[in-house]
Amino acid sequence: MVTWIAKNAPAITIWCAALSTFAIYSVLYAENRFYRFFEHIFIGLATGYGVYATWAQILGPKWWDPMVKQGQWYWAFAAVVGSMFYFMYSRKHAWISRVIFGLFMGLAAGGMFREFYELYFPQIGSSMKPIAGHGMSVWDSLNVVVFYVILLACMSYFFFSFDHKNAATKKTAAAGRWFLMIGFGAIFGATVMGRMTLFIGRFNFLINDWGPQVKIAWATLPFKIVIGLAVVWLIVALIRRTKPPKAKIAIEE
């Protein structure tokens, strides 16, 4: 059995992947048990793989092996500190989990000064663009003017330190909203592309990886019988779904 699976693993993998793809896409027609079942397979595999990967790639070689194989016994303290996370399940001592969460949050928050400096200081510097000179064409100068107008208008839109009562600030902020729409339009256009790519990726698999496998399987009689039965089942299921439920008719009557 194991040898047979090992021998036919590539084909089995492709068939399983196609089945999984159809199971998830079936939700597009309507919510169904087939979809829910595969959703649980997904959750089980994702969490199971997570446990395996974390142990095999990190805790095993970075904690267990140094402690047990290399004799660095003091790593045992890491387990004690790590166990503090699980106090969140105790109603009485849940606060202990906050100590360790606090440490991690503090470490993440402590980087704020560096992040601010490294990320935004170069941006501020780069925003000081020359309008003319240095071999700039009229087009380049115009681009810089566009940049300044949009930057200042958009920043004024986000400036909430005083009310936008003055006509100049009000209009600048309104223009900023218009310019932000260009940015959001760009994000939206790119988002459509990104999401479509993921869908195309699945279809590419179905057409170019699963398609040839179907061609091979089609040559066998059992496959034709299975497909025939599946089609009949699908038609019956669709007919049953389109029939109005009896209980509902009774209420309406």
Partner: peptide, 18 residues
């Protein structure tokens, strides 16, 4: 590989592509 590529990879990428 069957579990990983056949199911996990396929299920996650299909879910995202919805």
């Amino acid at each position: 590989s069957i579990l990983f590529s056949g199911f996990l990879l396929s299920l996650q990428s299909t879910t995202f592509s919805l």
